[in-house]
C-alpha cells in the first residue's frame, strides 16, 4: 500500500466519519465543526487530485466563508449548548432506507460502468491556465459564467438585504431579536 493510498483512505475515512457525524450530531455547533472537518478533508482530496487552486478555494470560500456564516447564524438562533431531540425513529429509519437504497443504486450503477481514461495527455493545471480559461471567450473558455455569477452574487446580496430590510411600520413587532 503506497503512501497516496494511505492518504486517500485516511481522508476518505475522515470525510465519511465526519459527514456522518455532521448529520447525526445532537449538538449543533459540533455539527458545524464536523462539517468544517469534512470540507477541509475534501480539500485534501483536491490536493491529491492535483487541483490546488480549487483546494484553496474550497478552504477559503467553504471553510472560511460558509462555515463561518453558518456558525454565526447558529449563534444568532440557538443556544450553544442546546441539544437536539434526536430525529424520530420512524423518520430516521425511512430516511436511512431511502438513502441506503439510493447509495446502493448509485454505487452499483457506477461500478457497472467501465470508465475508460482518455489517451490525450493531461494538461498541467496551473494558475495561468485557469486564469486564461476563465477569461477566454472561445471554446473551453468560461468568461460568460464568470460574468453571470457576478450577477448571481449581486442578486444574492440584494436578496439577503431585501429579506432583512425593514420597510415601513411593522404591523407586528418581531417577537424576539432586534437585529440590524
Amino acid at each position: 500500500m503506497i503512501a497516496n493510498q494511505i492518504m486517500f483512505f485516511l481522508l476518505s475515512a475522515m470525510i465519511i466519519v465526519f459527514s456522518i457525524l455532521t448529520v447525526i450530531s445532537r449538538k449543533i455547533l459540533r455539527a458545524a465543526i464536523y462539517l468544517l472537518f469534512v470540507l477541509v478533508s475534501t480539500s485534501g482530496l483536491y490536493f491529491m487530485l492535483n487541483y490546488q487552486f480549487l483546494a484553496a478555494v474550497q478552504l477559503t470560500v467553504y471553510a472560511g466563508g460558509i462555515v463561518v456564516l453558518i456558525i454565526f447564524s447558529i449563534l444568532l438562533t440557538s443556544h450553544i449548548s442546546q441539544r437536539f431531540e434526536p430525529a424520530g425513529l420512524k423518520k430516521s429509519m425511512f430516511s436511512a432506507i431511502a438513502a441506503l437504497t439510493g447509495a446502493i443504486l448509485s454505487i452499483v450503477t457506477i461500478l457497472d460502468y467501465k470508465f475508460e481514461a482518455t489517451a490525450i495527455a493531461a494538461k498541467e493545471v496551473d494558475m495561468r491556465l485557469i486564469g486564461k480559461s476563465l477569461l477566454s471567450v472561445d471554446y473551453d473558455g468560461y468568461v460568460l459564467p464568470f460574468e453571470v455569477i457576478s450577477v448571481l452574487l449581486l442578486a444574492a446580496m440584494v436578496a439577503a438585504i431585501a429579506i432583512a430590510k425593514k420597510s415601513g411600520p411593522a404591523k407586528t413587532q418581531s417577537p424576539t431579536l432586534k437585529q440590524e
Binding site: 442578486a155 440584494v158 436578496a159 431585501a162 430590510k165 415601513g168 411600520p169 411593522a170
Partner: peptide, 13 residues
C-alpha cells in the same frame, strides 16, 4: 406602506 421602500429590491430581484 410596508413594501414601498423595498420596491427597487423587488424589481431588481
Amino acid at each position: 406602506e410596508e413594501h414601498c421602500e423595498k420596491a427597487s429590491e423587488y424589481f431588481l430581484l
